[in-house]
Design a protein around this nucleic acid. Structure first.
Length: 781
DNA sequence: TGCACTCATATTTTT
DNA sequence: TATGAGTGCA
């Protein structure tokens, strides 16, 4: 492949005129603090920029690029700058342009790890047995493919689900293990068949001329490792390398970077070990912790001045993260005036929490209680798990508070979009078997399992694609009735669309035509489920998105890597999102609900990854707190409906770790006595609510602020529980619970009681929510 | 083939 | 609780 390096991305190097640089000056350096300036100016050699939350990381990074360009140290195409998300890449590009006050011609190698790798892989696809026009499968295709393989191997798909295998293989790819490199210790995974299936999967991908996301990196690393000449070329080209969010890199990405940086050693990695929250998907905090060993002589710059949060919020976050071990260590500081303390409030249950937050947001919006008035866009609710969002959505719908959920199913992952794309794919290339499988019977064409199997057989026996197979099947009249007619129509349609596409007419019209003629649009028009109108709307959006591309081919090529969810930020709405989704964002007001042990930190994390898991959860808490600029509100609920079951829980251990002097504990609304519309039945709850302030978490908090001693919060907790709860109940005792009513204690386990309720069945309940039945006025029967 | 039913299942998510 | 996938029947 001799033409690989001849395109515009690597024009001959022409030295920039130094006069031009002098004339332009360096206005972009204004307003940098000394550390940032340090990081920007150290252009040569490895640099690790440890950038705490809100310390102007992106500013430093983009200024560095601007500086490289402006001083003529590098041309745009000699800089490799990688991020994890398209959004980050876009922002970086925009800000460089802004800094230089002129359009940067190119920067062809600024992008996500994946997009850069696609570009590289398209140039050298043949070195890993692919054609240059390979397609990129998303997770859904990947799982479908694996499922086929599992079934073909005669493995029980129920016991050994494809999802699990996909996860396993992803993990291996993240660690840059090709099938032959999977260590023996891991090979026993997936019922001893893991590696075998992995190899079969890779083979299948090759015949489909396809890759999955993990392959994009893995293949490029493989090429670099096996072809010194290719690697050497790129080592020469990429004279300056910049990496964003380095703490999130996995092994494959790490190897990739190491290989590329080997020659010039001009690699600048930016990251924050305290914000590493993607360990569960292969990120290796170790990469950032080890940077100085990996790149000897590396300059380490710490960005520690925070420009985002008030001192109290910052101190709270620092206090929490301090409990983690093995940190590189940073001391964030700010020059901002004191501001509000972090607010802490406990609630009876999740609904109560949502109700309170709703009211609080309305108050903030009005600007009461001596606060400035907030716009809703300035407020975010950050949850640990997406199921927590429900309570807020329900509540906000009833009080008519506009909100927007960020995260949800992505545009290109929606069913209708994927179906439509499958039609487009087939029009571009009839080889695309997965696309054909997806839409043969969508809309319903009377082509069920049996018919599809026949098509498969026909294709396989002739060694051709499914479309060809279908054609052969029709020719030999292997299919009868309605199915045959419909299949013929589909195949004819695909042919016709392909022809139109080659003719190169208006691609927007063609897209619409395909969706109409295939009956796909009609399918949703006839659908009377509530989602149908939205789906039609999305299809329109999809066609509109084609506007930005020359033709459908170009669109398909790009779209597989763009999973962005565009949200119109013009409307004034509260944002609801997960803590993960909030990384990199900031809001004047942040609510952090659900700080309960088991939910946050998540029990599952701790069970699966032990201390490591707990530390990652803690980093998540740190990320959450540091999103807040002015107001941070942490809350917890004593009871929560989880999977239809009421569960009681204790305030999160992270609450104990917030330095007490940075916290203001709010009093439950019921205690003001001012609740106008309080129904009488709420009275019991309101009183009980006060008990939240007798809860262990809150007591510990108070105890610690009193003594400020070395007392271990964990011990304090036990003491409180012993006094409060466990000793006061005995097995067989009749008790009362606010939510479940009366019952009998059937078991005691630490601070948790098994209680057989008269009406609600047997439940495990935390003792503090229980009172003696007599005291509650039980009438024995 | 399509519908109604049961049953298991249940973080975090980008590309 | 709610969702999806798989199963059995018309």
């Amino acid at each position: 492949m001799t033409s690989a390096f001849e395109d515009d991305d690597f024009p001959d190097r022409v030295p920039l005129s130094q006069q031009a640089v002098a004339a332009r000056g360096m206005p972009y350096m204004d307003g940098l603090n000394p550390a940032q300036r340090d990081a920007v100016e150290a252009l040569e050699g490895p640099v690790l920029m440890l950038a705490g939350a809100g310390t102007g990381k992106t500013k430093a990074l983009t200024t560095r690029i601007a500086h490289l360009l402006n001083t003529g140290t590098a041309r745009p195409n000699e800089i490799l700058a990688v991020t994890f998300t398209n959004k980050a890449a876009r922002e970086m590009k925009n800000r460089v342009v802004q800094l230089l006050g002129q359009a940067v011609e190119g920067m062809p190698w600024l992008g996500t790890f994946h997009s850069v790798c696609v570009k590289l892989l398209r140039r050298h696809a043949e070195l890993v047995g692919l054609k240059t026009n390979f397609t990129i499968l998303d997770t859904d295709d990947q799982v479908r493919l694996l499922k086929q393989l599992i079934v073909a191997e005669g493995i029980d798909e129920k016991r050994w689900p494809a999802r699990q295998l996909a996860h396993l293989i992803d993990g291996w790819k993240n660690r840059a293990w090709t099938p032959d490199r999977v260590p023996v210790a891991e090979a026993s995974a997936f019922n001893d068949r893991g590696v075998e299936l992995y190899a079969a999967y890779q083979a299948r991908l090759k015949t489909l001329n396809a890759t999955d996301f993990g392959d994009l990196l893995l293949h490029v690393v493989t090429i670099f490792q096996n072809h010194d000449d290719v690697l050497a070329q790129y080592q020469r080209w990429f004279r300056y390398i910049l990496v964003d969010e380095y703490q999130d890199t996995n092994v494959a990405q790490y190897l990739w970077l190491r290989l590329l940086a080997k020659r010039h050693q001009n690699i600048c990695c930016v990251g924050d070990d305290d914000q590493s929250i993607y360990g569960w998907r292969g990120a290796e905090v170790g990469n950032i912790l080890r940077f100085e060993q990996d790149f000897p002589g590396a300059k380490v710059v710490r960005l520690e001045q925070n420009y985002r949060s008030t001192p109290h919020i910052l101190a709270a976050a620092s206090g929490v993260i301090a409990a983690n071990k093995g940190r590189l260590g940073k001391e964030l500081f700010t020059e901002a005036p004191d501001g509000e303390k972090v607010r802490l409030i406990g609630h009876w249950d999740g609904d109560e929490e949502a109700r309170w937050i709703g009211e609080e947001i309305e108050a903030m919006q009005r600007g009461t209680r001596g606060m400035r008035a907030f716009r809703l866009t300035e407020i975010a609710i950050l949850v640990r798990a997406s199921h927590q969002m429900r309570a807020f959505e329900d509540r906000f719908l009833t009080i008519g508070l506009p909100y927007r959920v960020i995260g949800g199913p992505r545009f290109y992952e929606r069913r209708e979009i994927r179906d439509a794309m499958a039609y487009f794919r087939l029009a571009v290339s009839q080889e695309h078997d997965l696309a054909f499988e997806r839409i043969v019977n969508t809309p319903k064409r009377g082509l069920g399992d049996k018919a599809q199997q026949k098509i498969q057989m026909a294709a396989r026996s002739n060694g051709v694609s499914l479309v060809e197979g279908a054609r052969a099947l029709l020719a030999e009249k292997g299919l009868g009735g309605k199915g045959a007619v419909e299949l013929q129509r589909l195949v004819d349609g695909i042919d016709r669309w392909a022809k139109l596409m080659r003719a190169g007419g208006n691609h927007l019209e063609l897209a619409e035509q395909i969706l109409d003629e295939s009956g796909y649009t009609e399918m949703w028009q006839n659908d009377k489920t509530p989602e149908a109108p939205g789906r039609l709307e999305n299809l329109k959006e999809l066609v509109k998105a084609l506007e930005n591309f020359e033709n459908i081919q170009g669109f398909l090529e790009h779209v597989s890597l763009i999973m962005d969810n565009e949200t119109d930020e013009n409307e004034d709405k509260v944002s609801i999102m997960t803590l993960h989704g909030a990384k990199g964002l900031e809001f004047p007001g942040v609510f952090l609900p659900g700080w309960e042990d088991g939910l946050f930190p998540s029990q599952r994390s701790m069970d699966e990854s032990g201390l490591k898991g707990l530390e990652e959860e803690r980093r998540l808490a740190y990320v959450g707190l540091t999103r807040a600029e002015e107001i941070a509100v942490v809350s917890f609920a004593g009871n929560r409906l989880v999977f239809g079951q009421w569960q009681s829980s204790l305030p999160s251990r992270f609450i104990d770790e917030i330095p007490p002097e940075t916290v203001e504990v709010l009093t439950a609304p019921g205690l003001y006595g001012g609740g106008q519309e309080a129904p009488q039945s709420d009275l019991g709850e309101r009183v009980r609510q006060a008990d939240v302030y007798n809860s262990p978490g809150w007591k510990r908090l108070q105890a610690r602020s009193d003594q400020r001693g070395l007392s271990q919060p964990r011990e304090a907790k036990n003491v409180v529980i012993d006094l409060n709860a466990v000793s006061s109940f005995t097995e067989g005792e009749r008790v009362f619970h606010q939510k479940f009513g009366y019952g009998v204690v059937t078991g005691i386990e630490g601070d948790k009681l098994d209680i057989s309720f008269d009406k609600a069945g047997t439940k495990k309940v935390v003792a503090k929510f229980i009172t003696g039945a007599q005291a509650a006025g039980d009438v024995p029967f």
